[in-house]
Each structure stands twice: as structure tokens, then as C-alpha cells.
């Protein structure tokens, strides 16, 4: 069925106002497919009827569900493995040296979808437990999508999801099979992390300071000005010596001056301290 220009514009505007995200061209083409289950459940037989139902305001949950259906929640464990390796074997040891005094690390996965990124980190910490003895490691995952956060909290994955990116030995170690088709993360890992519904665009960051921020495959759906504003917000809560990890195809270069490439860790970014005194810059590591 042909989606009228007017319908797709209204839905795009709804998505952008709630999340800051732009409807990508490919999603625009698949609007009908993305919204079909929702329309079917509500007994609405066309997009135009769906839009009328949203506009009438009789069902406040409807707009939210439409937005959720339009978001791209694609994710998997250890996505972009090589950057994860850089984080785990380069940036974290450096931070560990820098935070030896407090023995505290706080990590934020912004736009964490159904939690695979958060659990990847938590599993890696659990596997190097002896190195982090006595440390308080705080891993927070946030997403604008309530259903994604709910799924993340449950830590229950389909067979298809559980093996995407995850080595079989880690799957055997940290997951329990439920029935024949589902796998649940162990309570040890589950309890080491927390999740929260949060919008990068409409809210201020959930804490004042983070040592590591992962914001991956989220910024690419924002218009440039929104992307820049979000990067500035992230920079404001990146602790001295902390770093930012983006998706493999993303960069801050040309988008914002708030971060620069981490010269020691390829693919990661550090706060741009150009305006700070050099002594402070070096003293922070």
C-alpha cells in the first residue's frame, strides 16, 4: 500500500518531537510494515486511520507505541568487536590507573536498546574480576524506548539474539536456557547493571559524571544540530581522563569540537581540553 506523503510527514514529526530522531528513508519506505502489528492489534486498517486515532488523543499510549515501533533497536553483543577490544584492553586499564585512589568507575550506555551492550561490558568485568577486586563499577544503560528498557531489564533473549556477537563459551557461562528457544542472563550479571528510561534529547544526563560513555548507533539518526547538542551534553558529563565510544561508522569529527580522537586508543574519543591548561591535561591521567 502506498503511504501518502502527508501521513509519513506526520509520523516523522511525531518521532522527531519525542526522540529527536529523523525517520530514515529506508524506514519511511517500510512505515506500513513497521506499524502493521500495532494497527492490527488496534483494529485500524490504514495509516490514515492510525493518524486520526493519535490526533483524537483518546488513547494516550498509542502515540508512544507508534514511536517505539518506528525506532531502530538493532543491537548485538560486542558489536564492533575491535573497538570493544580497544576499550577493554586500552582505555579501561588506563582509567584503572587514574582512578586507583577512589576505586570507582561509572559507565553509561546511552541508547542501549535491549541491553546487549551493557551486558557485554558486565560480562567482561566479571571475567576479569580479580583485576577489579575492591572496585565499585557502576554500569547504567538508558534508552528512550520503554519497551527496550523493559527487555533489557529482563535480560531474556531469543536464540537468534543470544548468539549474535557472543562467543559460545560466554553464552554457556553467563546464560541459562529457558525452554528451547530463550536464554536468560545470569542474576550475577543482571545485578551488576541498572537500566533507566531516558531521552538524550529532552532530558539532562542521568548523572553528573561518567568515566566511560558509550553512545553507539544513536547519533546517526539525529539531524546534525541535535547530534551536536547531544555530543556537547555528553562532553559536559565526561570525567577528566574519561572517554566516549561511538558506533563503528560514527565520528565526532566535523560534528562537534567537544571531543577529539583519543591518541592512545583508536576509535575512542576524549574530551577536548584545548582550552585547559596543559598541566591539568597531563595531570588528569
Amino acid at each position: 500500500m502506498q503511504v501518502s506523503d502527508a501521513s509519513s510527514r506526520i509520523l516523522a514529526a511525531l518521532l522527531e518531537s519525542r526522540t529527536g530522531q529523523q525517520l530514515t528513508t529506508s524506514r519511511r519506505w517500510r512505515l506500513e510494515t513497521a506499524l502493521k502489528p500495532l494497527m492490527h492489534a488496534r483494529g485500524l486498517d490504514s495509516l490514515d486511520r492510525l493518524i486520526i486515532a493519535i490526533a483524537s488523543g483518546g488513547d494516550p499510549l498509542l502515540a508512544e507505541e507508534v514511536v517505539e515501533a518506528l525506532l531502530n533497536n538493532e543491537t548485538f553483543f560486542y558489536r564492533d568487536r575491535s573497538v570493544f577490544d580497544v576499550l577493554l584492553s586500552g582505555a579501561l586499564p588506563r582509567l584503572q590507573r587514574a582512578r586507583e585512589g577512589t576505586k570507582k568507575l561509572s559507565i553509561w550506555c546511552a541508547g542501549c536498546s535491549s541491553g546487549q551492550e551493557v551486558y557485554s561490558l558486565a560480562m567482561s568485568f566479571a571475567e576479569t574480576k580479580s583485576r577489579w577486586q575492591g572496585w565499585q563499577i557502576d554500569i547504567l544503560g538508558t534508552d528512550v524506548s520503554k519497551s527496550a528498557v523493559e527487555r533489557a531489564r529482563q535480560g531474556l533473549y531469543s536464540q537468534f539474539e543470544v548468539q549474535r556477537g557472543l562467543p559460545v563459551l560466554q553464552m554457556m557461562r553467563w546464560f541459562e536456557q529457558e525452554g528451547s528457544q530463550q536464554w536468560r542472563i545470569s542474576s550475577q550479571i543482571r545485578e551488576a547493571v541498572s537500566f533507566q528510561v531516558h531521552s538524550l534529547v529532552n532530558q539532562s544526563p542521568p548523572r553528573l559524571s561518567f568515566d566511560v560513555i558509550l553512545c553507539r548507533n544513536v547519533l546517526l539518526y539525529f539531524p546534525p544540530a541535535t547530534g551536536k547538542a547531544v555530543l556537547d551534553k555528553l562532553a559536559a558529563v565526561t570525567a577528566p581522563g574519561g572517554c566516549l565510544m561511538l558506533g563503528a561508522g560514527e565520528t565526532v569529527i566535523g560534528q562537534s569540537d567537544a571531543f577529539v580522537s583519543d591518541p592512545e586508543n583508536r576509535g575512542l574519543y576524549i574530551r577536548n581540553c584545548a582550552e585547559r591548561a596543559p598541566a591539568l591535561l597531563h595531570g588528569s591521567f
Binding site: 548485538f76 553483543f77 560486542y78 568487536r81 537468534f160 548468539q163 549474535r164 556477537g165 562467543p167 559460545v168
Partner: peptide
């Protein structure tokens, strides 16, 4: 060395080969 449960997709296969 590794184990894939069918059905799989490109991301699964690619990541297992990297692993």
C-alpha cells in the same frame, strides 16, 4: 571452536568468524 544455532544471519556468522 564455535557454535551457531540455525537460523543465523550475517552479523552472527561474521562475529563468530572474528571470535
Amino acid at each position: 571452536d564455535e557454535y551457531v544455532m540455525k537460523p543465523f544471519d550475517r552479523e552472527t556468522l561474521e562475529s563468530k568468524l572474528q571470535i
